[in-house]
């Protein structure tokens, strides 16, 4: 019998008593044990950002973060951002700008954007680019994502898509 540890995992404001092996990643526990499949596993080497979740408001790669380390911290996943059926400004701006195609990167991208805006509510275009530099989107070429984040921050970019990232 492998060693397990008992955790109280606080996810999206709700405590989940759960027994895990120390080796289990936060991504596996959230997806396979708690059914929170919004975060995705892609590169599995902390490069792509598809598994981005927040721990105490900081973005981390859940694919390479031990679930046991989340004990005592607040975990936020994409499922925790919806408010009673109401789209958040970021959700709405992602839809308005068509800031996704396949949608596989979108939950992670949204978490990265959430962390970015929490830290810097009025970012410049360059700051948005820096903030999502570690999140890969293979479909959109990033342009609408950057626009959507700026839009959600209230910095409506009149030039829109033609501005590119720089």
């Amino acid at each position: 019998m492998r060693e397990t540890v008992e955790l109280s995992l606080v996810v999206n404001g709700r405590a989940h008593p759960i027994r895990v092996e120390p080796r289990e990643t936060l991504a596996d526990v959230l997806r396979e044990r708690l059914g929170l499949t919004g975060l995705k596993i892609s590169c599995d080497v902390q490069v792509c950002g598809a598994c981005t979740v927040l721990v105490d408001g900081l973005a981390i790669s859940a694919c390479t973060y031990l679930a046991a380390d989340a004990e005592g911290h607040e975990v936020t996943t994409v499922e925790g951002l919806a408010r009673a059926g109401q789209l958040s400004p970021l959700q709405q701006s992602f839809i308005d700008a068509a800031a996704f195609q396949c949608g596989f990167c979108t939950p992670g991208m949204r978490m990265a954007a959430t962390a970015l805006l929490a830290e810097n509510p009025a970012p410049t275009r360059a700051q948005v680019v820096a903030g999502i530099e570690g999140n890969i989107c293979r479909c959109t070429g990033y342009v609408p994502i950057i626009d959507a984040i700026l839009e959600a921050a209230g910095a409506v970019d009149a030039a829109g898509v033609s501005e590119g990232a720089r």
Partner: peptide, 8 residues
């Protein structure tokens, strides 16, 4: 690296 790696 990236912001997630830097956070951790």
């Amino acid at each position: 690296a990236n912001v997630r790696v830097r956070n951790q």
